[in-house]
Amino acid sequence: MWKGVLAEFATQESNAAPAAIRTRDLNLWYGTFQALFDINLNVRNGIITSLIGPSGCGKSTFLRSVNRINERLGYVRIAGSIDVMGNNIFAPDVELLQVRKQVGMVFQRPNPLPLSIRDNVLFGHRLHEANKAAENDVVEKALREVLLWDKVKDRLNQPAIGLSLEEQQKLCIARLLPVKPRVLLMDEPCSALDPKGTEAVEELIWELRGDYTILIVTHNMAQARRASEECVFMLMGKVVEHTATDTMFVTPENKETADYIEGRYG
């Protein structure tokens, strides 16, 4: 019982803390189909927040709105606002490339580019900086950050596609880091991995918190519970509940949340 109260307290305090991602009345339509309804969410800075909910509840759609990659599909319409680090990403003077730089994304299937390990890590760096002298340091730092350096330091020039899926996914995280993102969005980053790979990547994500704000979509209840500090439960395009992960999994407020967590639907 005490644990619940403490978590409640933490959440209340979190509402006062500055939000890394803050949405106000976010609505999104694919053509005539409304996928998100009045999303009002404060994702706290520097922690891991997981997004859970049944398939089609809008969690991936929400995730893909935060770096505006949804808009590539011409038929998406958005109303409301999303602030990232206090800046509205839909403001008229916003440069889309800057949003994408600040808000990195990791996909369900590892998608290393068909280049060497080294060139993968440097890809983003080279887009934005011409500093060749720094390249070795950039590679080492990024790969160390994702706990991959010792494994691959002797074969940096080999194709990234030769790595295991787990290593590929870590590499996909590593190549975001040199462009210095503030937020990392992860769309079921472990669902293509075996249990051992999942554990390793989860461990990495846990290491990265603090330096980055991490928003992670997952189907895996156990993963949400293990690897996130706050948890958002979505259903039919709406946010049902947003509390500390411990609270949600022990004493969920809503019946829908409880039913989903206990596996009554999904």
Binding site: I69, L97, R100, K101, P114, F123, G124, L127
Partner: peptide, 18 residues
């Protein structure tokens, strides 16, 4: 060319031409 490659680039802030 797989769409995933393009998405990977865009998410590092690459322009379409890059």
């Amino acid at each position: 060319v797989p769409q995933a490659f393009r998405e990977a680039c865009w998410n590092m802030g690459a322009t379409r031409w890059q």
